[in-house]
Design a protein around this nucleic acid. Sequence first.
RNA 1: GACCAAGUAGUGUAGUGGCCUAUCAUGCGACCCUGUCACGGUCGCGACUCGGAUUCGAAUUCCGGCUUGGUCGCCA
Length: 429
Amino acid sequence: MLIPIKDVTPAVGHAHIAGWIHEERDLGGLTFLLVRDRTGILQVTIPKKKVTPDVLAAVKDATRESVIECEGEVKATEKAPGGRELIPETLRIISRAETPLPLDVSEKVPAEMDTRLDNRYLDLRKPRVNAIFQIRNACLRAVSEYLWDNKFTQVQTPKIVAAATEGGTELFPLAYFDQEAFLNQSPQLFKQMLMSSGFDRVFEIGPIFRAEEHNTLRHLNEATSIDIEMSFANEEDAMQILENTVSYAYKYVADHCADALTTLGLTNFKVPTVPFPRITYREAIEISTAGGEPLVFGDDLSTAAERVIGEKMGTMYFITEWPTSARPFYTMPFEDRPEVCRAFDMMHPRMELSSGAQRCHIYPLLIQQIKSKGLNPDAFEFYLNPFRYGMPPHAGWGLGAERLVMTMLDLNNIREAVLFPRDRHRVSP
RNA sequence: GACCAAGUAGUGUAGUGGCCUAUCAUGCGACCCUGUCACGGUCGCGACUCGGAUUCGAAUUCCGGCUUGGUCGCCA
């Protein structure tokens, strides 16, 4: 029976393992093969005079990154990495790797992101790259767990939609038989329709598509969005769910991913404390202006402004009370001062992670806001009908999964947080 | 989309007009080596993004293309 490499200890006596050859060191009469699987790396030691001719022939034929299996006695020795080594009685090459390799899995020689992504199947063999995705997995599991525990129902909404309804971002057009269709930029309108349907609380973790020609370290054209919507709730209720979800995810990773964090060198991983500080939009532009990035009411926050405010805050924080003009039509304005609205952004010191709001559930006001954005209410018929037949007040947010992982692990490039990223120039692999 | 920058062995690099049949590392091949852990040693293999121009001479200068990276914009 095959056993995972991390479970290979002198106590097991005899072990049968399989994996990739990470490195080979031939000292003459003695050869060391470092064999890697999903769980770790084991030294297989071959004293050439003491093994069978078959083992010797296989070792001679072996190349780095070939898949092998071997069986033999496990010995404790302080001379081997991890304090144990396997002396093979049998050793077989299952799949021989060609040479040269398109990139160096053992990371003695670095590779550029483009080379890495062209050969992602090899790049993902690197223990530190693999560790990122172990953590991403844990993170999304924790998010789902927290939301389920708080009575959210997981849903899936369509990614193929009929029209570029909301304005704003560019959409990818799609040939849908004889109709025009697009890849959806956000589950926003569907989540809201489900509030009318009585689901009360929903969440979705799924892809979103944006056809913007940006070319940065923090944008993707296909991203994963963690979206929630909750009924009988205001923006403060939504913010509490958000900060608790994020801190739960950090806590889960801290508790369950110690090995992966060590592999990534994140020895002082900190769980952010809740509640996150809240500042208003007006305070944010004051901080930015004082820090040398002048902004006036109504401006969006520039990249430089986000940086200035992030440095000042030094932790995750919320920006609340945004100008109504700067937010989408479905946002609820304050009753007594309609120039600002019940929207918020959740920021990491490095960048925006999430935005949300209490939504406008009042049909005539919604129509009015659509018109004031220069959009045509007729185009929103399917979205708007639910507001005519009993729509509870509701609030929600969308959180970028890649940005959450990226900032959590202090990754420089958002592409590091996706298995097969889609950016301005890359559609394959 | 604008601006800036860059394309040299499989990978990562050095090289700003002749000293380049191009540096170094890693890799690969051969040989030596029984305790490596970036093993070591000797020898060898393998590259100037494409097209045009300037020049006695171009990896190096100029023009154009292609590709890539980054910044900003844009991105509910």
